[in-house]
Write a protein that binds this DNA or RNA. Structure first.
Lengths: 244, 244
DNA sequence: CAGGGATTTTGACCTATATCAAACGCACGC
DNA sequence: GCGTGCGTTTGATATAGGTCAAAATCCCTG
């Protein structure tokens, strides 16, 4: 049972939260973890549709999602909105707000959810004392940049089918990481929200999903999806037609 | 000459570089600035077309652009590429690499350029000692996330004309910040690269620029642009047709 | 200063996706 | 259990932008 030696501190650090993101894999002593634990002691519950924060609100804390599902969206003055991400358990939300001390997007619960509040100035203070925590925070910030670049690639150079295949595979992989089935899950978001995220209209999302179902790649009924052919979906994300 | 009191340390901190990004506005003592100065002592020159780093290369340092112009691009396996940004003097490049200790994109000089190398582990170490530097680093990372979200909005929900208008206005504003003309400048990148960045084909970029010229918004001859009507361009970025 | 490759412009045509519209179905509240 | 309304599917049509092609222009090298 050597493994549990490294698992135990994870639980300690997050007061029972399952927060892979903030739980450092090593190099933290029990005392360190206790400090981190104190920091993340505030917990909040949100119902479907609740705002975790709104664009323009003063920035105080990051939030680690304990359970549930959120979307983040930026609003253009004219009413257009762009969903910038779907966040699930273990992910950190609010990173965009550090730059200007104010939130730059809305975060809305897509299902009943719980989050741990992480007061940012305290996190900064602690991360000055714990190099390993500091490094982790930097990685989280940088990972978000890499994720965004991936979405830029998706939006800038992929076709609707490719985007949707990439989206389904991304969800699949994230569910798998959390111990859920990678091939059978519920979509928490509407076609409209998927479309906003992927830069397409809800009708196109619906049509494309139907198409995937038609060729046996997936089975979709309302919000529940089954991925029948992961390699088949992968093929869409890969080379475009002219390279096949 | 009170002003020069705050200006002087800036110069010290960057050994003559004009690096707004890393130069902290306050709260650093002379001694602090000297340490920062030591850190950023390595300088390198690149010619047009040179790679600052390549995707996959081990991450060691961030780079502060002293003079010149770079592009960053991510490559899809199949050969598709997406330009993820155009960086100019005073901007920090390489932030994406922190997450995995390896660069995730290529950075290529679009003109002869100079950069200051900032060894990251030393920057982390120093930022543990200087809260003000730590905060600044976090802001830089977060600002990149905000920028990327803006591009997601652009790619996901704007039309070609709107994207290009937004792009020109963004360049305009960044040149202005650096003391150059906001209405007359040289594009360092090709139509192809602009297109990649904005999710459109080079022909569409060219056509749209011609269109802007046709209606008197801009004058463009090859790489030199003059913006004749900033509010006119702004109007494109704003509300879409149905809201006008 | 001339030649040649790269970049840009412009035109004609085509296609992926948007738009508009209608029917359907699931979920929630009464 | 039964409307009622939001979300979804599907169809018909329109269009922004892509594709292909050719000419024009620029810029670098010899």
């Amino acid at each position: 049972m050597q493994k549990s030696v490294s698992l135990t501190p994870l639980r300690v650090a997050c007061s029972g939260c399952n927060l892979r993101e903030l739980c450092l894999p090593r190099k933290l002593t029990e005392a360190d973890l206790e400090q981190l634990d104190d920091l993340i002691s505030l917990k909040h519950a949100y119902q479907r549709g609740d705002y975790l924060y709104r664009s323009g609100a003063k920035f105080q804390s990051l939030y680690a999602i304990r359970t549930g599902f959120f979307k983040t969206q930026v609003l253009h003055e004219d009413g257009r909105e762009q969903v910038t991400g779907f966040q699930m358990a273990g992910e950190i939300i609010g990173l965009d707000a550090i730059s200007s001390d104010a939130h730059t997007c809305d975060a809305i619960a897509l299902e009943d959810s719980e989050v741990c509040e992480i007061p940012f100035s305290q996190l900064e203070e602690l991360s000055r004392k714990l190099p390993s925590l500091q490094r982790h925070l930097h990685r989280i910030l940088s990972r978000e940049i890499v994720r965004d670049q991936g979405i830029m690639l998706l939006l800038g150079s992929m076709r609707a089918e490719e985007r949707l295949a990439a989206f389904l595979l991304n969800l699949s992989q994230r569910f798998a990481t959390r111990g859920y089935s990678p091939t059978s899950f519920h979509l928490r978001m509407t076609r409209q929200e998927i479309g906003s995220y992927l830069g397409m209209k809800l009708e196109t999302v619906s049509r494309t999903l139907s198409h995937f179902q038609g060729i046996g790649l997936i089975n979709i009924r309302n919000k529940s999806v089954e991925l029948h052919n992961l390699p088949g979906l992968q093929a869409y994300v890969g080379p475009p037609p002219q390279f096949l």
